[in-house]
Amino acid sequence: MRLIAFDYFRAIAILCIVAGHSISYKSITSFDERVIANLIQGGSPLFVFISGFFFHHIFYRQFEYSSFMLKKVKNVLSPYLFLSSLALIYYLSSGISLPDAKELGVSSLTDWQDYIGMISLYLWTGRTSFAYWYIPFIMLIFLMSPLFISYIRQSLKTRLVIFIIALILAMIVHRPAGNLSPWHAVMYFLPMYLLGILVSMHCESVQRYLHNKAFILGITVVSLAILQAMVYPGFGNLHKLHPFTFDGLDILILQKIVLCFFFLSLLEKLSEHQPQNPLLRLLADASFAIYFIHPWVLIALVGYQRLPHLEQMSGLVQFIITFPLTILISLTLAYVIKRCIGTYSRFLTGW
């Protein structure tokens, strides 16, 4: 499978993530809106799938644990620590309440031990921002890399059995409440990472199977979104505090698995006709910087009501306005930072 398609997939994945966060601010009530929200929300599995694919495609053949982790610390953990520290400094100096303080058990901060405990909690959970939970989770996945090396070396039958067990487990445990538990997130997203590895290992067979399948895959994605809207009263991701209490089966992860194949089928054909699409390549290159920056742009636009009359608009109209604007501002900020400080920007924004 051509990597151009996966470059484009990274661009689509970051668009899906920002779209999901943009629509989460909106008032979604009708059945149609809930179906649309089910399609838009939950973009993180796409990123996890891509990460699993590249783990096998790029790192497996000459895997060396210490150098692999060092690269992830530089490119992933460093911008996370920098931006999370800025966020904590802002919250503490401005007098604004710390996000999810009650859920995290953070109350009074009277001495240095309280501050150390608070900082540790926020860095462990990523709750300095509603999007940053992904970094503690994915760093745990990276730390588990020797297990994935062992997984790759198993027989195909064993790999498929492990994947199916992980998928059933994910459908039971759902995502963690408030995205506050990285280990709970590992249980939920593990099958997406394993699926990415499997696709990389059998990319030619997958490519042949997906050829001209975009339409039927797209219909399946929409059907699963409709099914979820019929079964569950809410929309988007399912969350719960205790992973092993049964509260229905997560349908969204099945939808996102099919969505991955839909995009691969579509983007493989696009990459043949447009191997140098400048917009998709730019979004792919800047995807991690957009991920780190977009929460603050959304908070500024929506949380601080920088867009006049936004609250009077319908949920989907609000989304149509805020989503492209958030992408444009985030990409512009990422580009300006990169132009100003060059290669050092990777340590600050991931690009």
Rank of each mutant, 00 (worst) to 15 (best):
V161M: 11
F130D: 07
W112R: 02
G117Y: 08
L86D: 01
W112C: 02
I164E: 00
M139P: 04
I165M: 11
G126V: 15
Y151P: 07
K102G: 01
L123C: 08
L123P: 10
I162H: 06
I168W: 00
P146A: 04
K157N: 07
L92N: 07
Y115T: 11
S145T: 12
A87T: 14
M171V: 13
M118R: 04
I135G: 00
L88S: 04
L156M: 10
I96M: 06
I119D: 02
Y151T: 10
Y151R: 07
W112A: 09
V161C: 04
A87G: 02
S93F: 13
A87Q: 07
Q154K: 15
L140K: 05
P146F: 09
I162T: 13
L167D: 01
Y151I: 10
D111S: 10
S108M: 12
Y91P: 08
S107T: 15
P136K: 07
T125M: 13
I149M: 05
F137E: 02
M171D: 07
L160G: 01
L160K: 09
T128D: 02
P99W: 09
A87E: 09
W133M: 05
L109W: 00
F163K: 11
Y132A: 02
L86A: 05
S108G: 03
F130S: 10
L121V: 13
L86R: 07
A101N: 02
L92W: 11
A170W: 06
G95F: 12
W112K: 04
T125V: 15
A87D: 03
L92P: 03
A166W: 13
L104E: 00
S150K: 13
S97C: 07
M139W: 04
G126P: 15
L140M: 11
I168A: 12
Y122Q: 00
S129I: 11
A170Q: 10
L86H: 03
I96K: 09
L88A: 03
F148I: 14
D100Y: 14
Y90C: 02
Q113P: 01
A101I: 13
S129L: 01
V106W: 12
I116R: 04
V161R: 09
I162G: 00
D111V: 12
L169W: 12
L98M: 02
L121I: 15
S145K: 08
Y151D: 01
G95K: 08
D100C: 10
L143T: 12
A101W: 14
I168N: 03
R153F: 03
Y91W: 10
D111N: 12
A170V: 14
